[in-house]
Design a protein around this nucleic acid. Structure first.
Ligand SMILES: [Zn+2]
Ligand SMILES: [Zn+2]
Ligand SMILES: [Zn+2]
Ligand SMILES: [Zn+2]
Lengths: 130, 130
DNA sequence: AATTAATTGTTATAATATAACATTATGTAA
DNA sequence: TTACATAATGTTATATTATAACAATTAATT
């Protein structure tokens, strides 16, 4: 069997919900909202989320245990992500900055080691909350 | 009452353990290891961890739900952290790069917004695992 | 059709984290 | 030094997040 090239039913249901949302969704919030579509158990949600993260359709906001659809067309790598997070209203925005991604992709640590995968979360106050 | 300037007993016990460890520790691993010192409940550990993170003595590795002592003398801000994480052996290293921290501290998003707080986690393979 | 791999469904449970409230310790100020 | 306010603690219970294990089904490959 070759690598799946499309979304399965559960994956599509979860993705539709996450894409419709203006804010990051938590796994159990997703579960609650897709129960009418026949997804009954946490594991069904987590499996769909795992795959969607793997193929870069969504990202996990690690500091919030929540998931957001990718809104960065240049985010092909899917493994190099950057977000800003408002500490008051919890608004999360995916940052797409060619400069930033270039800088981080080329960053070398003390041992000269490069890392193609990274996750960066900026914290501060959004426009509305300042 | 003024802001506490020293560590309380529980905070010191937890910090001692985290500082002795060569790898990030999870909250319940910490709990298990400090029970002989009289800390009996998860909440006691989480409260100590919260304070230690707040004052910058330790950092949370968000993608791993684990805590590591600060090994970055220039990490005064305590809110601007960067780590490399080996995806095989899970070795975590705090990155102290003046260039990186300067770049990120000065980074502006599309709206010209700056963020003084951030957490960056790089993923890859450490020397030993390559 | 037989084989293989991926996905699904299901139940149970593990791992991570916080709520709520009573108590004790400690700093501040009259 | 006594009253007050604040911070930390102890304790029990519970909430939240995530995975183990296994049987059943679906779909591509030969
Ligand atoms: Zn993206
Ligand atoms: Zn905001
Ligand atoms: Zn540090
Ligand atoms: Zn390694």
């Amino acid at each position: 069997m070759q690598k799946q090239n499309f979304l399965t039913k559960n994956q599509q249901i979860v993705l539709d919900l996450v894409e419709k949302s203006s804010e990051p969704l938590k796994a159990y919030t997703i579960l609650f909202n897709v129960q009418k579509k026949g997804i009954k158990a946490p594991l069904q949600v987590y499996r769909a989320l795992d795959k969607l993260v793997e193929i870069g359709k969504i990202h996990k906001i690690e500091s919030r245990n929540a998931f957001i659809a990718c809104h960065n067309s240049s985010c092909q790598v899917a493994k190099a992500t950057a977000f800003s997070i408002c500490e008051i209203c919890e608004k999360v925005t995916e940052i797409s900055s060619a400069g930033l991604s270039k800088y981080l992709a080329n960053f070398k640590d003390k041992d000269g080691m490069k890392y193609s995968k990274y996750n960066l979360e900026f914290f501060g106050l959004c426009k509305k909350c300042r």
